[in-house]
Design a protein around this nucleic acid. Structure first.
Lengths: 233, 233
DNA sequence: AACATGCATTGAACATGTTCAGAATTCTCT
DNA sequence: AGAGAATTCTGAACATGTTCAATGCATGTT
């Protein structure tokens, strides 16, 4: 359904098309940021980029697909940043903080159009549905970042399989919180993230304790079983 | 933003308008069920109801609002059913089962258009956004049902405040699962619900144990604090 | 009956996302 | 250079959600 990304890793010279594509993307994002996603029309974008309306559709299958492409960039940026910032950090809490806050930083200014990512949440068939098949590879990539972040010694086998999916879901929640967060500088979302991570890290620590572990273990096993049954782990 | 519901609790005689409204609603839902939400146009609905296109908009501010009205009915049905079925049931697990499965039963056949409820998930301003201000009262109502279901002796004060929001969110997840569930009779979702409820009930039981409680208590307190900070409890 | 008032309904017009047949341009190979 | 192919781009047309001025219609009032 998606146009081939063909992000010329092979050629050094940008073809004319790549240039136009980048221009349309850049201008669209500027307009989304400036005026918001809904009120910005494809005609606005095209005319601001000095091309015909149809040109935008030559490069992007839909208006939301522009945001989706932006989000691909975000994922790449995030992956790179995380690899860098995680070096030398060994404490689980710290590592989780890196992953979540760096994502938040990258995305912070784009609340006005991040919501477009959720446009097809209720449409399981749509290629851009957050939970759909069309976005599976991006989901897997994103979960790989979380898997990397939690790769610290002392974590149970079950937890290692459960957490990537759980954290991915939690991070979706973070983005939603950001979108709805009217507080200055989105303070509330930052605070929420820290609170959740504190709790989570403590809970994980606690669950590894010799006293508590026997009680928690069967739960982990069952959760993992359920995730596997539904294709999440 | 919404048209006054004015569900004539005062008058016995349906005015002409009420009749048309009901007709449009009925026919719209039939078409949604039969062909799906997206492919059914407002023109289809209007012409099937033998009215002009504009008539539909006299009663419903948008296509999604039709589904929203349907969902109001669902909530009412659910509330009634739960009140009935909860009588005499005292075990937490059983009560949770009643609430979740009765909802599932009510909604089961309508997967084709339930997704419309999530159309504005990413648009915090929209009156029909699941998490938005425009749907707050419905959320509160729904949470009240869960509050009722968990009103059993032996539940900590914190849990009583945390669970309604948590269960409401979980039940949203259930609906999403249903929408994406291709398995025959949506077996997977039923199984998932049972699995989650089993775990939850066990976890709640365990957390009330004298041995475990001291460990869990501070977590509950912090979670509650966070929910309160963000307006969820 | 004639009139006034407000609810109900119409259908054309509008806005905007999207499609598409073709034109323009660029690239490739001889 | 020039023919042909592939890529890029155009802009009008289309589909559909939505708006709205105008009209009909029922009901109560004089």
């Amino acid at each position: 359904m998606f146009k081939e990304v063909s992000n010329g890793s092979s050629s050094i010279t940008k073809s004319a098309g790549e240039h136009t594509r980048a221009l349309i993307l850049k201008i669209a994002l500027e307009l989304f940021r400036l005026r918001g996603f809904e009120v910005t029309t494809m005609r606005d974008i095209a005319s601001a980029a000095k091309v015909a309306t149809g040109a935008a559709y030559y490069y992007f299958p839909s208006k939301e697909a522009i945001v989706s492409t932006y989000y691909d960039q975000v994922q790449r940026l995030h992956a790179d940043k995380v690899v860098e910032d995680l070096k030398g950090k060994t404490a689980l809490r710290e590592r989780l903080g890196v992953v979540f806050h760096s994502k938040l930083e990258i995305v912070k200014e784009d609340r006005r159009f991040l919501g477009a990512l959720f446009r097809y949440t209720g449409d399981s068939e749509h290629p851009l549905s957050v939970f759909g098949k069309g976005t599976q590879s991006q989901r897997t990539q994103s979960m790989a970042i979380f898997r990397e972040a939690i790769s610290v010694p002392g974590l149970s086998e079950e937890m290692q399989q459960i957490l990537p999916a759980a954290l991915w879901l939690a991070h979706l929640g973070m983005i939603l919180s950001l979108i709805y967060d009217e507080s200055e500088g989105q303070r509330k979302t930052h605070k929420l993230v820290d609170g959740v991570l504190d709790l989570l890290a403590q809970a994980i620590d606690l669950s590894s304790t010799v006293f508590v572990r026997p009680f928690v273990q069967p739960f982990q096993t069952k959760v993992l079983q359920m995730l596997q049954d539904s294709g999440w782990a």
